[in-house]
């Protein structure tokens, strides 16, 4: 008896140890990425980096202000384009199309879902190529703009935000909608004043998830927004660089002082990484706050 029990504890220990090892193994790459980016990126993380562009710089010095601004402008406009479309589609699918008997509306809903699935599956470079083709056909092959990049990123963002938004909206209890309708509210009012507020935290994290999905995108922007060493606040015309494209261009087109280019690339990578981690942290915080609220409510019950 004692013998068996001992064997069990040994097996148990080996198993637990194995699991811990797996867990550690999974964290190692993450820690190493963060550590490498931190240690190599901190060298150029100075004031110049945040206040200067690369205009006229061929060696050391310069900064990434133009790329930071580019990332903010392009991401913000991609979000502004994608979010109304994504949430609008999600609302239409969950609130209207789901409760219809009309075969035409059902067919349309199926088609829309199909299109979203296809969009979710296309590689980002294809979204970029698509925008490139559209622009080449309409505005000429040499045309580059931050806005075109934003549209390409919006194409990538829409399915991500739509899907998680739809999931969040579908979780709003039907009882709440019924309660609203039974008070004599029109359906749009129930959606606006009951469904959306109830789903708000989930929708916010869907939004943050979408942003963190596109903020690091490089390929489509390389194609349609191009790269530049100068500031450009104008989304509608002229090349506009973003942080990931900046990293790529610093890495790819090193001047004589290669070390300076490397350092700038790492610093830009660090800024980008910090941004993405911040977004994930925010999304987690929103979810945690919501869960806490629910627990408080349950406890009071």
């Amino acid at each position: 008896m004692l013998h068996i029990a001992k064997r069990r504890t040994v097996a148990d220990r080996v198993f637990t140890g194995g699991l811990i090892a797996c867990g550690v193994l999974a964290i190692v790459p993450l820690i190493s990425v963060v550590w490498t980016t931190l240690s190599r990126g901190s060298e150029r993380l100075d004031i110049d980096f945040f206040t200067q562009s690369m205009r006229g710089i061929t060696g050391a010095g310069g900064g990434a202000l133009h790329a930071i601004m580019g990332t903010l402008l392009i991401t913000a406009s991609a979000t502004l384009i994608a979010v109304p479309i994504a949430f609008g589609t999600a609302l239409w699918l969950t609130e209207y199309a789901a409760s219809t008997t009309s075969p035409a509306v059902k067919a349309l809903a199926r088609t829309v879902r199909g299109v979203i699935d296809v969009l979710a599956g296309i590689p980002s470079i294809v979204a970029g190529l698509f925008m490139y083709a559209v622009i080449a056909l309409t505005l000429g092959p040499g045309y580059r703009s931050g806005f075109a990049g934003a549209v390409a990123l919006a194409l990538i963002m829409i399915p991500v935000v739509e899907r998680s938004g739809e999931e969040v909206l579908a979780r709003v209890p039907a009882e709440l909608k019924e309660a609203g309708l039974a008070l004599g509210a029109p359906q749009w009012s129930v959606i606006l004043r009951v469904v959306l507020p109830t789903a708000l935290p989930g929708l916010v994290s869907a939004l943050l998830l979408g942003i963190s999905r596109i903020i690091g995108e490089t390929a489509p922007l390389l194609l349609v927004a191009g790269f530049t060493d100068s500031m450009n606040y104008n989304l509608s015309a002229g090349r506009m660089i973003s942080l990931p494209v900046y990293v790529y261009s610093q890495w790819q087109n090193k001047g004589v002082d290669a070390q300076a280019y490397d350092a700038r690339a790492w610093s830009a990578a660090l800024v980008l990484l910090a941004g993405v981690l911040l977004l994930h942290g925010l999304a987690g915080l929103v979810i945690r706050l919501q869960r806490q609220n629910r627990q408080v409510r349950r406890a009071r019950r």
């Binding site: 009882e175 709440l176 019924e178 309660a179 609203g180 039974a182 409510r297």
Partner: peptide
């Protein structure tokens, strides 16, 4: 007016 089986106050 209507009252349902499960209490359903608006959580927000």
């Amino acid at each position: 007016g209507m009252v349902f089986q499960r209490p359903n106050p608006f959580p927000t």
